[in-house]
């Protein structure tokens, strides 16, 4: 097994206030994220999921415990650029992370900061815009784009730095359904085709369901960790944490409660429909 791209050990975090008493936001997080994986972190507001994400590229430093990115300790200030080059971040508000007034200039911002030669920046920018499907907008002004397009530009800005991992900190929270779909399919493509590790911080169940691994946060703790199909089986448990399961799972759960024998691992509409179809055709055969 290869070395974890992100590893935390007994990660503890408190905001420091002037009074000195501050609530603990993260409390003893032990986590390892494998290279090339697609991990979703789910939790309601205040669960600490965004705070956790900000530790993955040294925007926040742990109050206690350690965080390593590709074996580099994030507390090591001399390696800060190396760490941030490895782990790119996409934030919630698309307007507040676009720096330049032309799309391609914005994508070039990261590589420019890294001191990449001009000609290579050009290649990286073109490739990155191609990857996120925004090549035709290269010379547009960002403020004229839709939310989903802006977030794709932001993602292009991150991949132009050629990171090993992208962290999306509720990057779809301000988008409409179309924009969310655009961003999510872009991210999945990056994960599948380029092998970039993706950490998706979200509170949308349907997005979390698409990951390989689902981590559920509650009150600064990791309370669930596993494949989405597995985690969502525990409908009651999740509901007691204030989380809802995807609608397809919820439907199956209600059917089961009513005594119908259906599987609970239907994460998307297709598998749900297939399960219902086989149930109904079976019922027909036995009924006739």
């Amino acid at each position: 097994m290869s070395e974890a791209i992100i590893k935390t050990e007994q990660l503890l975090f408190r905001y420091t206030t002037e009074e000195g008493v501050a609530p603990t936001v993260l409390d003893g997080i032990d986590l390892e994220i494998e290279p090339g994986s697609f991990v979703a972190v789910l939790g309601h507001n205040g669960s600490g999921k965004s705070t956790l994400a900000k530790h993955f590229n040294a925007i926040l430093l742990p109050t206690g415990g350690k965080v390593w990115v590709s074996g580099l300790d994030t507390a090591d200030e001399d390696r800060l650029l190396d760490i941030r080059r490895q782990v790119g971040m996409v934030f919630q508000n698309p307007d507040n992370q676009i720096v330049a007034s032309v799309v391609e200039e914005d994508v070039a911002f990261g590589p420019e900061n890294l001191g990449v030669p001009s000609r290579e920046i050009r290649q990286r920018v073109d490739a990155a815009l191609q990857t996120v499907g925004m090549a035709e907008f290269a010379r547009h002004a960002p403020h004229l784009l839709s939310g989903g397009q802006k977030q794709r530009v932001a993602i292009a800005g991150v991949i132009a730095m050629e990171p090993a991992c992208i962290v999306l900190d509720e990057a779809t929270a301000m988008l409409d359904p179309v924009g969310r779909r655009e961003v999510l399919s872009t991210v999945k493509k990056l994960n599948r085709e380029k092998g970039i590790t993706v950490v998706l911080i979200t509170h949308h169940m349907d997005e979390a369901a698409q990951a390989d691994r689902l981590i559920v946060m509650h009150d600064g703790h990791i309370v669930r960790d596993g494949a989405p199909a597995q985690v969502f089986q525990d409908v009651e448990g999740l509901r007691s944490l204030g989380l809802e399961v995807p609608e397809t799972v919820s439907l199956m759960y209600e059917l089961r409660k009513a005594g119908v024998d259906v599987p609970l691992d239907t994460l998307d509409v297709d598998s749900c429909a297939a399960a219902l179809f086989s149930l109904l055709t079976q019922g027909k055969e036995s009924g006739m």
Binding site: Q97, V99, N113, L114, G157, M161
Partner: peptide, 9 residues
Amino acid sequence: TAMECRCYH
């Protein structure tokens, strides 16, 4: 913050 994340220094 976003600029810092993109290695602006």
